[in-house]
Simulated scan of single mutants.
Amino acid sequence: MEWTSAQLRSLVELTRRGTVTAAAEALGYTPGAVSQQLGALERAAGMALLRRVGRRVELTDAGRALAAHAERMLGIAADAVAALERTTHTVSGVLHVGLFATAAAEILPLALARAQNEHPGLTVHSREMVVDEVYDAVAAGSVDLALGLDYPDVPIPRDPALRLIRMLRERFSLALPEGVLSGAREISLADARDLGWILPDLDTHYGQAILTVCRRAGVEPHVRHQVTDTAASLALVEAGVGITPVTDLMLRLRPSRFRVVDLTERFERHIVVIVRATAQSRPTVAALIGVLRKLATAGE
C-alpha cells in the first residue's frame, strides 16, 4: 500500500473536524481537493474508508482503523524530517506556520522581516487559523509550529508530544465607552457586571477564561453582543454599545476612541509557540522561535 502524507493528513483532519468542508478549512485546501485526496487514499488502501450518509460522509470501520494509525505515521514522518534537518546544522528550508488573526496582523510582519534579515535561507509559509485550532494543527502535522493563546484560568489540554513555549504575558483591562464610569482608573468585575459586555463565543477558550474569572469573582456578565473579531468588538465599544476586555496587543489592531481601565481582578493570557517536542531542535524551527523570542523581549 502506497499513500502520501497529504492523503493521511486529510483523513486525520476529517476525523478531527467531522466534515470535508471543515477539514478543508483546517488544511487550507478546497473541499474538492480534500475529497480527491481521500479518494486516492481509498484506492491506495484497496477498501472503502468512507461512506455517505445523506449529505455527509462518515468513516467506515476500515477508515477509523487507518485514522488511528495515520496521526502516528505523520508524527514519525515529521520526526524524520527533524532528524535530517539537524544533521545539516544550517538554517535553510521551508517552515509552515499557523497563527491567529491578531498575531497575523501584529507579530508576523515583524517576525518575517527579521527572519529574512537574519536567516536568508529560511522560507516561511503562514496560514491564519481559528485560534482554538492551532494546537490541533501542530498535532496533526498541518503546520510545523503555530502561534497560539493559552489562558492560565482555562489552560490548553497538554499533549506530551507537543511543547508550549511562552513568548509574552498580557494582562487584560476593560475598554469602556466615553462617559461610562467617568473618573475611575481601576474597577472590579462587580462594578462592570451590568454594563453590557461584548464577548466572543463563550464556548471558546477565551470565552471560557472570561467566564471563569468572572464567576470566581461572583459575577455573571450581562452579555449584549457575541463577537469574535477583535477589531469589531473595539468598534462597538467606540460606538458606546458595550464594554470588552482588551490587552495592549488587541488595542493595536484598531485605533479607537474609548477609555481603557485597569481591572482589580487579575486576568491574563499568554501568547505561546506550539511545536512538536522532537522539532524544537530543528535549526529552522529554533531560528524562528529565536526571532519570536527577541520580538517578545523587545515588546515587554
Rank of each mutant, 00 (worst) to 15 (best):
E128P: 12
V130E: 09
V130D: 11
D132N: 10
E133A: 11
E133V: 09
E133R: 06
V134R: 02
V134D: 05
Y135E: 08
A137H: 00
A137L: 06
A137G: 01
A139S: 14
A139L: 14
G141P: 08
G141V: 08
S142T: 12
D144T: 14
L145D: 01
L147Q: 01
P152G: 02
D153A: 15
V154M: 13
P155L: 08
P155I: 07
I156D: 02
P157W: 12
P160A: 08
P160H: 05
P160K: 00
A161K: 00
A161C: 09
L162C: 09
L162Y: 00
L162F: 09
R163H: 13
L164C: 07
L164V: 05
I165L: 12
I165A: 07
I165T: 09
R166V: 14
L168T: 12
R169L: 15
F172W: 03
A175T: 10
A175M: 03
A175G: 06
A175I: 07
L176S: 04
L176R: 05
P177Y: 08
P177K: 07
E178G: 15
E178K: 14
G179P: 00
V180W: 01
L181A: 07
G183R: 12
A184N: 10
E186A: 15
E186P: 05
I187L: 12
S188M: 12
L189R: 02
L189W: 07
A190S: 15
A190R: 15
A190I: 13
D191R: 12
D191N: 11
R193G: 03
R193V: 03
R193T: 11
G196M: 01
W197N: 10
I198Q: 03
L199H: 07
D201Y: 09
D203I: 08
T204F: 03
T204D: 10
H205W: 09
H205S: 14
H205Y: 12
Y206R: 11
G207Q: 10
G207Y: 04
Q208E: 04
A209G: 05
A209N: 04
A209F: 06
I210K: 05
L211W: 02
T212L: 14
V213M: 08
V213I: 11
R215Q: 10
R215I: 00
R216M: 12
A217V: 09
G218A: 03
E220D: 13
P221T: 06
H222F: 15
H222M: 15
V223Y: 06
R224Q: 06
R224Y: 05
H225C: 00
Q226A: 12
T228W: 13
T228Q: 15
A232Y: 12
A232S: 15
A232D: 14
S233Y: 02
L234T: 08
A235S: 11
A235T: 09
L236P: 04
V237E: 01
E238Q: 10
G240W: 00
I243Q: 02
I243L: 00
P245R: 04
P245L: 07
T247R: 03
L249F: 15
L251T: 08
L251V: 10
R252D: 08
R252G: 01
R254I: 05
